[in-house]
Design a binder for these strands. Structure first.
Lengths: 192, 192
DNA sequence: GAAAAACAGCGTCAAATGTCCTCTTTTCCC
DNA sequence: GGGAAAAGAGGACATTTGACGCTGTTTTTC
């Protein structure tokens, strides 16, 4: 499982063998089953995760119990709950597995050590954050400006791999639509 | 105008007199009128702005010309278009002034110099970004899970100062509602 | 391999929302 | 100061969306 991650690292950064070893030394590999919960609401998030295989989702619930997905994370993506991780505050989000998944964990303090010793890793992470900020804005723009049909199309284009692997009601939850509306959109598209 | 900013700096960071002077040496103060455009779609964003006074808005248009506001920025907030700034790509967003405003500008390269020389500033900025990521997530959650009434109430609570100073159609644009729906929500609330 | 749960389509109805329009008040700008 | 533009409320109407209930199918689980 760690092989995928090392490939990813080599593709995105130039690191010395020592640096690669250091990163590996703090990593904890773990396989999880579908539906397994990795972070509960109210818990303090203590880890950063890299997804080697599978899909995770980050979601939040309303008082009425409905779940609303703010993020899917598939292969080669990082997952954490930054607010809880950085401030040591209870998380308002859940994280769980949509599929059986293969993950790599680091604790916050270990990752901070890595940042201190490997400037390139720090720099790379900053770029990832910056890109995430951009994606977040795009999502907000889409949420406030697009029709359900447009949201659905954008989702398929942006996350083609995720699309085929998660149930429709989760896509509806992610897009902020009812399952009914989503199925209407899909039905209408069949005719074209 | 610069006095407000220096107060802000002193409140949030411990900086030496030399560091304060260095920051000041790169700053460009500028007053702008209401509706003045600071960044156009297609332009490359070259600055970071601190708002001393007034309100800016960041928005994007659809093909049909409708404007959709992704952010309001009032006193003591920073504004830029990170995607364009970091990647030197054409901005997809507009930034303009909602009120007559007093602003301080830095170029990207000057700010990078400041980061290199003042680690505390870098650290502080990272915290701001982290907080913005959290706010962005909250906004997404709200957009996909809340009713129009809830969105309106949350907006008032989160941005009480902005709320009183921008026209309603901009609030509707920010929340992703039609002006009609917003005015209906407000009307219904009068009765309670 | 059987029972249970999850998934997703569909119909109907009611409610929410948007569009288009007019009308009034306020603000802006020369 | 006066004309033009902007802002916003409200009515009428059409459309969209969601809630609920039901059904058949697939998938999971033990």
């Amino acid at each position: 499982m760690y092989a995928e991650f090392e490939t990813y690292l080599r593709e995105h950064m130039q690191l010395s063998d020592d640096e690669l070893r250091l990163i590996h030394s703090f990593a904890v590999e773990r396989k999880v089953r579908r539906k397994q919960v990795l972070l509960q609401e109210g818990e303090i998030c203590r880890f950063k995760i890299f997804v080697c295989k599978g899909i995770l989702r980050t979601y939040r619930t309303r008082e009425d119990g409905t779940e609303h997905i703010v993020q899917f994370s598939s292969e080669n993506l990082w997952v954490t709950e930054p607010e809880s991780l950085h401030n040591h505050t209870p998380s308002r989000y859940y994280i769980d597995a949509v599929e059986d998944s293969e993950l790599i964990f680091w604790t916050k303090s270990d990752f901070d050590t890595l940042f201190a010793q490997i400037p390139r890793l720090k720099y790379f992470t900053e770029r990832l954050i910056s890109r995430n900020v951009t994606l977040g804005r795009d999502r907000i723009f889409s949420a406030i400006s697009s029709t359900p049909e447009e949201k659905y199309d954008e989702f398929i284009q942006t996350y083609p791999t995720v699309f085929a692997r998660v149930p429709l009601h989760m896509i509806a939850s992610y897009l902020g639509l009812s399952l009914k509306t989503l199925s209407r959109v899909r039905h209408a598209q069949l005719k074209r």
